[in-house]
Structure formats: C-alpha cells, structure tokens
Nucleic acid binder design. Structure first.
Lengths: 337, 337
DNA sequence: CTGAAAGCGCTTACAG
DNA sequence: CTGAAAGCGCTTACAG
C-alpha cells in the first residue's frame, strides 16, 4: 500500500542504492538525479521505514522512558521536558507507565527491548530490580532518573535526598517544631529509603522527638496516606508538623487534614518534597523541596544521548546528585502550643 | 551481541522455521523439540526482534497516541488508562506530546508512521489538521479522542460539549447569576469552538447578559488566562461568575483570583470543564463538568483495537458522544449583589 | 513433524 | 556517479 524505497527507485529509473543515498544525504549523487528523486519523494509523501533501516544500521533513534506514574506531575513534567529535548536530537521518545507495579515495568521494558530502543531512561526502578539490572548488564545505554538501584555502578541522576531532608527539617526546627510526623514512600524505592533514613538521622541530630510511632509508610494509593495521617493525628501527643516524602502524598495529606476541618499551618504544618508545579498554586501553597526537576531531566537525556552517540567517556559511571532547594510557602508556620 | 532466532536454531540443531513455530505457538512441532527450544530460550533470555517480525507480518502491535499536553491531568489520566487497556490486548502504547504545537504534532505523527504503528489515537488535532487528515486518508486505523476534525467522516469519541455547557450555565442560572464571563480555549480546536458556540447559544436562551466583552480567548499559557481574567474583572459591570472552558484554565483563574484577594464563591464563582481529579481536592473544590474521561478513554482504545484486529464493522464511522455530568463543588455559589 | 528458500524494506561495501 | 548483491532478523507457503 504505502510507497517503498523500491517503488521510488523504479519510478525514477535508478537503483535502490541511489535512492538510499539521497535519503540519507550521502554525497556522490548527480544533482539532477538527486532532484528527480527528491521531487518524487515529496510528491508521493514517501516515508522511509525506520524499522527496516534499523535492521541494517542497528539504530532505531528511539529512546524508551519508563516512569512510575504519569499522573504524578513530577513524572509528566519530566517526560515533557525529556521528549522535547530528545526530539531536538532527532530521537523519538516512547514513554511507558508502570503505575509503580514491577510486573508492568517488566512488560514495558521487554516491549522496549523487542522494539530495539537505543537506550533507556528509567524513572521507576526498585532498589533491587532484576529487570533493570539485566538491561544494564546487557549493555543498553541506560540512565536511572530520580530513583536508583542498590547496585553501585549504574548511571544515575538524582536529587541529593539527604541534603533535601536536612533543609526541610532545619526549616521546621527554625519555626519551633520539635515533633514531626513522617510519611515515607515505599521502602523498595531509593527515594523511599533515602528520605526515610535521612529523616531519622537528621531528627536525631536536630534534637527532635524520635520514635517509630512518628513514622508511617505511605503508599501511592490515597487510602494508605489517609490511614497514615489518621494514625499520626490520633497519637497521644500528635506531631505539630507532617513531612510527606513527596508532594503527591503531601497533597493528599493536605486534602485530608482540611477535610477534617484543621487549619494549616496554625494547627498543623505540612511540608512536601519535589516541588511539583501545583505546589505553588495559591490554593495549595505547599512548602517543599525543589529537586531541580528540569535540570535533572535535561541532564539525563543529554547524557543518555551522549552515551548512545558515543560522545561520552564510558569508563566511569555517570552519577550526578542535584542540589535541592527549600521553597517556603504557606503550609508551614510556627506551632501554637 | 544479543541472541537471534538463528542462534537459537543453530544451538538446538533445528531450522529457523521450527524455532519460529514454537515462538509463535504454532502447532506441528514435536513436543521434545519444542521443549528443547523453549528451554534454551528461557536460559539465554532470548527476545524476538518485533520489528523484524513486523516486516513479514505487517503488524507491530504498537499503537501511537498523540496528546496535546501530558502535564494537563486530563491527558495523563487518559494516557494511563489507555496504556493499561492496550497492554491487556498485548499492544504497546507509545505516547507523544505535542504541547499544542502543530509542528510538533506533525513530527510525532511522522515518527510514528515511520515506526509502522498499527493505529493512531489522536487527542491533539486541530479542526483542520492536514497531517491527521492524511493519516486517515492513508488508511491507518485512527480514532480521534476528545478533539475532533471539521471533516465529517472521521471516527471520534468526544464529550457532548453542547450538553455540558448547558449543564454548567443552567447551574449558574439557578444560583442567580445573570452575567457570566467566558474564557474560551483556542478556536482552532473543536473543544474550543464547540464550547464557545454553546456558551453563546445557551447564554441567549437562558436570558443572560451577552456581548463580545464577556468572552475572552484563553490560551494554554498561564499568562493569557491571567490577562483574560483581568479584562473581565475590570469591566464596568464585571461578571459574577467565570466559566473557564477547561479545568486546567479554571485552576489558573482560581489561582489568580485568590491571589488578588477575592473570595470564592462569595465575590466570584468559578466553573470549569473536564473534571480532572484535582478538581475534587479539598483546597480546590472546583465545580465542573465531568466529561467521562475514563469511559471515553476505555471506549477509544477498545474500538481502535477492534478496528485494527478487523472485528469492528468499518462501513460507518464510529462517532460517540459521551454524556456529561455536572459536579457541584464549592467554587460556585449565589452572587451577592 | 521439519527444513530450504524467498522475501519484508532498507543500507552498505564493492566493483565499475 | 551508479548499480548488483548480500544481509539485517524474522515468517511463511511449499515440499517432503
């Protein structure tokens, strides 16, 4: 049905080799021949079959990005930035959404491998993630974005979680808080454990009240977050501030706390992590930690393309920690004892 | 580097034809032979090259979805639902984001054609969209989702915009409003013109104040929406309610109005369109029109796969209008004159 | 039950 | 400047 290179060759009376040359802008074609071919290509709107081409060249100009949850603004913003950047370099980005489900991730990565992507940008991996480890071992150019593996030598671009948590807690301390409830992300993700570990370490250091009862594991389903908040608020001595391990959860906390009729920040302060665009909305005004989403996203895709194109020295893993920043908004204030 | 079917054949001492048969679960292979092959495949984690396969079969099991703005929750929710549904049928969804830019859309669609997608789900088209028209004319199975073409015979699944606008305006009338400001979407999209046209028609019918000064074209950049709101509020007789043509803009309106220190809904009511998940958030509580996002998304992908698989009768275009519903929340109330 | 051969739509040395 | 031929990794009649 669609025109093929062979058709173009036949219709212009040249060989397929010649058509291929003009298609790829290679030298050594008589201008008249080239013009004739170009004209026909335009006329019939011929598009080369990239998959066929890739069988010979080994390159698909396709990058697979795997995200944990495309409805979380953190990931959709990142995907948007990365896609535009990729296109500038003539790569097509294909995005798969795992919904934080490891089986879905497996399926998606396999589908991408079967389609011969040139490289992977993975923003969904668990700490011990067999499939992702396989991909790296198999030699696919790969960059982990936002979440890393336990394994040490993988390329990653992540926020300096420890620093971020410190900024958040120091801010709360300066406001006069002493008792902070923490809603952690799932421990199977690097963000989950690192933010949690830092929370515990910094809490101690800053002289906060500590104890397992102040720490709840949230999930990515709202119900879990709500349960966690309830438990914190029902404590004999409830915390004066809640630190949610990411903005997506902080939004759920905020929703629930307001629903309950509590005033923020007078009765309870809330702080998040990520600084998704919505955090700045006037109805939300969430104090949070800016993890440099755009810088990270751009760096990730640039580095990946450099690896694919062989421009980056590959001897040492690329491991970049982004510098977090505190964003003070209206969801935090001094506690009224 | 990676194992090929040929390797598997060589290592098990059979022909490539036989390996291909077991790969595709075709009958007529001796059980022992099959077992031997299956075992090796597992052992070396062999993955068939789907693009090579597709050259013979003509099917890539890949569906291209084009969205207008992946950071707009409307589209990310839809993409998420559609991707999971596609995977159930063994299709891989690849998503491209146009950012409402027609040139990007062109590039994305071309990239998808070059990769031989089996069909298109397009949620980004302008009313007169040469590229999309081409795709349809070229015979690709295609369903327009959310936005349609001016051209009459294309498949689409959209909300009944007219009905939706009527619901919104009737609600405002019942609250006692008589003067409504409208922030329309760009007129180049079907949603833009249809919601606008219905606004004008219904306003007249319901006896509202009418006039071009009550209608402003918003954009998808925040600055435009802000400018539009300012102009409405600076009118000698400003409207008592603002109707934004979609929730994404309604959120911007809300942000700006609160920023200005106005109380919602006492001083101004705000109503949106789409019912994105965030509209229900306690900090937002936006009254809006539910366009049946999930029903539409699921229907769209099911229908598309039916067309691709040849299960759907193709004689008449598939044209489905979803029934909108009013969601009353706290952003609308009676005006205090 | 199995294999040899052709071919899907391209590219790329090689030869002229 | 141009073309014939081989081959990328698969599938599929066809023959046995």
């Amino acid at each position: 049905m669609a025109f093929t290179l062979k058709d173009i060759a036949y219709l212009t009376g040249v060989s397929t080799a010649t058509v291929s040359r003009v298609l790829n802008g290679k030298p050594g074609v008589k201008p008249e021949t080239r013009d004739k071919i170009v004209k026909l290509i335009k006329e019939v709107d011929y598009m080369p079959d990239i998959t066929a081409r890739s069988m010979k060249t080994g390159k698909t100009y396709t990058i697979g990005m795997v995200v944990a949850d495309i409805t979380n603004p953190f990931y959709s913003e990142a995907a948007k930035t990365i896609e535009f950047q990729a296109r500038k370099h003539n790569y097509t980005l294909i995005v798969g959404n795992t919904g934080n489900n490891i089986d879905e991730e497996r399926t998606i990565i396999t589908a991408f491998q079967e389609r011969n992507v040139d490289g992977f940008l993975i923003a969904s991996s668990e700490l011990r993630d067999k499939k992702v480890e396989n991909v790296i071992r198999a030699g696919y150019p790969t960059i982990l974005y936002h979440r890393r593996l336990a394994q040490e030598r993988a390329n990653f671009i992540c926020c300096d979680e420890e620093k971020g948590v410190e900024l958040a807690l120091t801010h709360l301390k300066n406001l006069g808080h002493r008792r902070i409830g923490f809603i952690s992300g799932p421990r199977k993700f690097s963000t989950g454990v690192e933010r949690l570990r830092s929370f515990m370490a910094s809490s101690q250091e800053l002289g906060f009240d500590t104890g397992a009862f102040l720490i709840k594991e949230g999930g990515y389903e709202k119900s879990r977050t709500i349960k966690a908040v309830k438990e914190l608020l029902n404590l004999p001595e409830p915390p004066t501030a809640i630190f949610a391990a990411n903005d997506f959860m902080a939004l759920q906390v905020l929703d629930m706390v307001l629903e309950k009729g509590m005033r923020v920040p007078d009765e309870i302060s809330i702080i998040g992590f990520d600084d998704i665009p919505l955090a700045a909305h006037h109805s939300i005004q969430l104090t949070t930690i800016d993890v440099q989403l755009h810088t990270g996203a751009i760096t990730a895709i640039e580095k990946l393309i450099n690896i694919i194109d062989g421009l980056e020295n590959f001897s040492e893993p690329i491991q970049i920690l982004l510098e977090p920043k505190l964003k003070v908004r209206a969801s935090t204030g001094s506690p009224c004892y």
